[in-house]
Design a protein around this nucleic acid. Structure first.
Length: 280
DNA sequence: AGCACA
């Protein structure tokens, strides 16, 4: 921390975007996602199946808010960047082709207070609805948390509804634009190696990506040091080294799944490298 | 999914 982010002698250096980063989530240790846009007959198991394959996934919970039949969910990850990656790849995904309902995912306002009980279920149902005799069986699919601390998200639900009532109210039935979204729920956005490292591994670059192009992008971020591109089996991969793990983490968050001009495929897949780049 | 350089 003695050197801050002083500009090195880098011909590609442009400007420090620390306060004006694209997507600017400079804010968080939030590792929980808030999910709305769910059909009212969604099951906790379905939520779990959406998130369970995401790297860094911890647990999720389905919540009947008590506002009409609206149901929301929270998905908790082991770290912020995993949550971000899952958010980017699942937000806007069509959840039910029949009804046209589309997932709306945002960072939760606060982390889920529920601590993962190892061995206990990976998902949970919280029912705040006033019981009706007709649909009393919905919440019994698995483990129901009886912990009185289970419910910090009610804040989140309330604020989400206040701040974005149109979003949270009933987009499943009322938004005609939902029909345009057609993304495969089974896709994945890897962060893979979960252990933090100040070197990043960057894949899914596309065959025409050049070292210069990628360096232009990376050198906008504080702490960027060295980039190396290496072709393996025709597909280039890159290693980008930063001064600090935190700086690498922010770059991963900001550039995850973003698509370079040279790309002929999806966005970049960025993970922590398995080992730090050797000293220059 | 695909992780090298010493």
């Amino acid at each position: 921390m003695s050197h801050g982010h002083h500009q090195p002698y880098d011909p590609y250096y442009q400007l420090p975007p620390a306060a004006a980063a694209p997507g600017g989530e400079w804010n968080s240790g939030i590792n929980t996602l808030f999910v709305s846009g769910l059909p009212d007959d969604v099951k906790a198991r379905e939520i779990h199946n959406i998130f369970r394959r995401r790297p860094g996934f911890d647990s999720c919970q389905l919540k009947y808010t008590g506002r009409g039949n609206q149901v929301v969910a929270f998905a908790t990850f082991f770290n912020h960047q995993s949550a971000i990656a899952a958010l980017h790849s699942l937000n806007g995904v069509k959840f039910d082709p029949q009804s046209g309902s589309t997932l709306h995912i945002e960072l939760a306002r606060s982390n889920s207070r529920r601590k993962r009980k190892p061995g206990s279920g990976a998902y949970v149902v919280i029912d705040k609805r006033t019981k009706k005799p007709s649909d009393a069986h919905e919440t019994s699919s698995d483990d129901v948390e009886s912990d009185p601390e289970e419910d910090p998200e009610m804040n989140n639900v309330d604020t989400a509804y206040q701040g974005d009532s149109e979003n949270a109210k009933s987009e499943a039935a009322s938004d005609p634009d939902n029909a345009a979204v057609a993304v495969n729920i089974g896709e994945r956005t890897a962060e893979g190696g979960v252990r933090p490292c100040s070197t990043l591994f960057i894949a899914n670059l596309g065959p025409n990506c050049t070292e210069d192009e990628l360096k232009q992008v990376l050198s906008q971020y504080p702490g960027f040091h060295v980039l190396k591109i290496r072709a393996k089996g025709g597909m280039p991969v890159a290693f980008a080294d930063f001064e600090e793990i935190e700086q690498a983490t922010k770059v991963m968050e900001n550039l995850q799944e973003t698509t370079l001009p040279s790309s002929d495929r999806g966005g970049m897949h960025i993970e922590y490298a398995r080992s730090k780049m050797r000293k220059p």
